[in-house]
Amino acid sequence: MDKKLAVQIDDLTVAYNYKPVLWDIDLEIPEGVLMAIVGPNGAGKSTLIKATLGILKPIAGSVSIYGKPYNKQRSLVAYVPQKGSVDWDFPTTALDVVLMGTYGSLGWIKRPGLKEKKAALEALEKVGMLPFKDRQISQLSGGQQQRIFLARALVQDASIYFMDEPFQGVDATTEIAIINILKELRKAGKTVIVVHHDLQTVPEYFDWVTFLNVKKIATGPVKDIFNDDNLTKTYGINYKVSIQE
């Protein structure tokens, strides 16, 4: 593969109170892949994303996005945090949450205008949430909330999408809707990186995978490295997944 590298992570180490949660991670993510990050609870999957996006400060190592540090490349990156990380009782509507995706390109002080609103409405339409645009966010189901988050990332119109467990607590229909949108993004040449829990669906949904458990176990194309050997190394128990064609 002589594709460009979308993300390059070198020697990344992150610790909470001096206890390492990520240990010397080297990771190269080629442009245009739809990649799953898998690993047991506490493996540092979310931490890896947060450290990549400068939300957490690593104690060592560096991250580059298309060859430059993240803080120079913010406009190329969209981020979907875990659904549980925000307060859904916050007094705001679905449309307003999606509009937050435009704040990055606006910068400090400037307010979203008509152009931003139009983009937000289009993103809502794309995830099938247009009829709910004025609804207070606590009045949405778990799946609908996740779609709102996805719409907010879409409105950022980025090159790389980081998503922290977008399938957590969503119904089957929403899961299919989300994965279809992610596949569309890949088709458009975007890079999509997803923290994922359901090992059964990895081969069906993704073309690239990273095994993580504090250290990086393996990374590469799903068809080459998604096997019992790597799963056992990552999860520490004898793991068998039936890989569907």
Partner: peptide, 22 residues
């Protein structure tokens, strides 16, 4: 008035606010 948007996003979603550079 100046920082309404920044206050809102960092109150609602700290992670996104940080990743966007606010």
């Amino acid at each position: 008035i100046a920082f309404f948007k920044e206050l809102k996003i960092s109150t609602f979603d700290v992670g996104l606010a940080a990743s966007l550079g606010f």
